[in-house]
Amino acid sequence: MTANGEPSADTFAALHELLGPLNKTGVDLKPETRFSEDLNFDSLVVMEFVATVEDCFDISIPMNILPDITTVKHLALAVEKIVKADRG
């Protein structure tokens, strides 16, 4: 994570690619894109997506952080935090 709390372009690009096939509403994917409101993710799609993110980054995303993740940017920051903690 960079000092100003912005996710890196690489993380966002990776999430962008994973989101592609799940983007049924066809919105432009931006850091502020919201999972519920803009992408219409229901809880089953959320879990499928979480699994692909975990596989891609080789991490485990704890369930208790989900309620605080509203946008792609929130997820990118959370992923970077977990990656950093895992890799020391």
Binding site: F35, S36, F41, D42, V46, N64, L66, P67, L75
Partner: peptide
Amino acid sequence: PLPTAFGRR
């Protein structure tokens, strides 16, 4: 219950 979705805190 436990939470199960993005956002919705």
